[in-house]
């Protein structure tokens, strides 16, 4: 019976994926991240991997608020899906495209004197260092960012 198979599928899907729509505002990003990290797919991950996911997702979302929407109104769609040992993350917004159509390099800061230390620009460096298969594409007036993270500790 179709109803039976649907009932069996729903909890499985809920445990393997999460979706959320977040308003482009720093406080909404904070609340949205809290809500996401309460969902089963992220709760199931080990502490270290959850921490990495929190860093990467926060940087990606805050970049969209600060640069793509630049303080203007808008929404950000986040979709997370567990695929075997990976967490596949897709983020979509309708803000301004990436300058030049490519992701920033995000190089680490050079050794600088104390007064020359940067107070920003760390975000893309961390995203690049902690994610895999990082892709950006602009289509239909939307930015599509996707990457993979470890959903569980790599086997020894």
């Amino acid at each position: 019976m179709p109803g039976d198979s649907l009932r069996r599928l729903v909890p499985q899907e809920a445990a393997d994926q999460a979706r959320i729509v977040i308003r482009a505002d720093p406080m909404a990003v904070r609340d949205g991240l809290r809500a996401l990290f309460d969902m089963p797919v992220l709760r199931a991950m080990p502490e270290t991997e959850r921490g990495v996911a929190q860093i990467v997702l926060a940087e990606a979302l805050n970049n969209i608020v600060e640069h793509a929407y630049a303080g203007g109104d808008g929404v950000i769609r986040v979709s997370l899906r567990r695929q075997r040992a990976d967490l596949l993350c897709q983020i979509e917004d309708q803000g301004a495209p990436m300058p030049g159509g490519v992701l920033p390099a995000g190089v680490p800061h050079p050794a600088a004197a104390r007064e020359d230390l940067p107070e920003g620009g760390f975000g893309w460096h961390m995203i690049r260092a902690l994610s895999r298969n990082l892709r950006y594409r602009r289509s239909d007036g939307r930015n599509h960012l996707s990457f993979r993270l470890d959903a569980r500790r790599p086997a020894p």
Partner: peptide
């Protein structure tokens, strides 16, 4: 439990504001 790059930038700014 969590600090992002804006938080890190703020800590760096506090250190710089303390002076040499």
């Amino acid at each position: 439990s969590f600090l992002d790059s804006s938080g890190l930038g703020a800590v760096v700014a506090v250190m710089k504001a303390l002076g040499p």
